[in-house]
């Protein structure tokens, strides 16, 4: 074949230069925007730092200070209490169930909303946000109304000897409901932005629906999925209101970590309360760090698709 194509080499040097120039330009623009007098700037920054200290740093420090106030031994002894271990175990089980369910629901919902057009789409999007706009206590009450002894399914459940309320299923249901939007919310904008062209290409190349999903769609949204799962997990482990309503507070059985913190605190067991609280605080810190890492990956993904 005698075809000649003078190739524009990928990402040429001139392009890189242009990018550097654009960056320098942006920095200069930022400098120009700093027009406030020095004193004003200092006051504003001081206010921000003070606010952060009082509302974020101080509480965090207090949690750990209180937890370790009687020393390391007391701290670990408090965590080793059977009640505490039971709460940690229950929290992990409930989080695993609700994150697992919401991962599946969230993926399906986001896939349907982002890749297809159908009647009632806007309604569905609104519905997904519902758990965010309803007070968690109300969310819990809904399940009491449905599954409680006086609830719609109460008699039937009692006749068949199925325990939902004041047991793991009820707690998992309430948590799942409250954390439902996280995965879907993380994925919908991402999938909408990516469009359907790659999927269409895959199908025209002979891929089945499942092959398309696992080989094309999922790899493109994997960072978004992890991001949604992370936030969902953090909320699932920390949920108080909805769980409090459906749990029944049976010691050693239906108390999750946040519930146990409250109980211990009310019983003046400060070290134990703050020891459990410190675990939740650490979960929050780890979540923040992982979130930052994931956000960087998500941004990179956007850069890569930006041509």
């Amino acid at each position: 074949m005698t075809m000649q194509i003078a190739d524009s080499v990928s990402l040429s040097a001139s392009e890189a230069k242009a990018r550097a120039k654009a960056r320098a330009h942006a920095a200069a623009a930022r400098d120009n925007l700093r027009t406030e007098p020095r004193a004003v700037r200092i006051v504003i920054i001081a206010l921000a730092v003070m606010f952060l200290t009082v509302f974020v740093v101080l509480p965090l420090v207090v949690v750990f200070a209180q937890a370790f106030s009687r020393g390391l031994l007391a701290y670990f002894a408090a965590l080793a209490e059977p009640e505490a271990m039971a709460a940690i175990e229950l929290t992990l089980i409930v989080a695993a169930i609700s994150v697992g369910l919401n991962l599946v629901f969230g993926l399906v919902a986001a896939w349907a909303i982002a890749k297809f057009d159908f009647k009632g789409k806007t309604f569905l999007i609104t519905l997904i946000d519902l758990p965010f706009s309803v007070s968690p206590v109300i969310s819990g009450l809904v399940f009491v109304l449905l599954f409680g002894a006086q609830g719609y399914f109460g008699t039937w459940l009692r006749d068949h000897d199925i325990q939902i309320l004041f047991a793991v299923p009820g707690i998992a249901l309430a948590t799942t409901f409250v954390t439902f939007p996280f995965v879907a919310r993380a994925l919908i904008p991402l999938m909408q932005e990516q469009g359907t062209q790659e999927e269409e290409a895959a199908i025209s190349l002979g891929a089945s629906g499942l092959q398309t999903f696992f080989r094309v769609t999922l790899p493109n949204i994997k960072w978004g999925v992890l991001y949604g799962v992370l936030l969902c997990n953090a909320r699932a482990m920390g949920e108080f209101g909805a769980v409090s309503v459906v749990s029944g507070h049976i010691r050693g059985e239906t108390n999750t970590m946040p519930l146990l913190v409250e109980i211990l605190y009310n019983e003046y067991q400060f070290v134990a309360a703050f020891a459990i609280a410190s675990l939740l605080a650490m979960l929050a810190l780890i979540t923040l760090i992982v979130k930052t890492v994931l956000e960087r990956h998500l941004d990179e993904g956007e850069d890569a698709s930006d041509h």
């Binding site: 062209q197 790659e198 269409e200 290409a201 025209s204 002979g206 493109n220 698709s305």
Partner: peptide
Amino acid sequence: QGARERHVGFVFQHYALFRH
């Protein structure tokens, strides 16, 4: 037949290469 069975090669305007 669906797109999958038609055995048609399609080149998209914005290429639609699999980015990953």
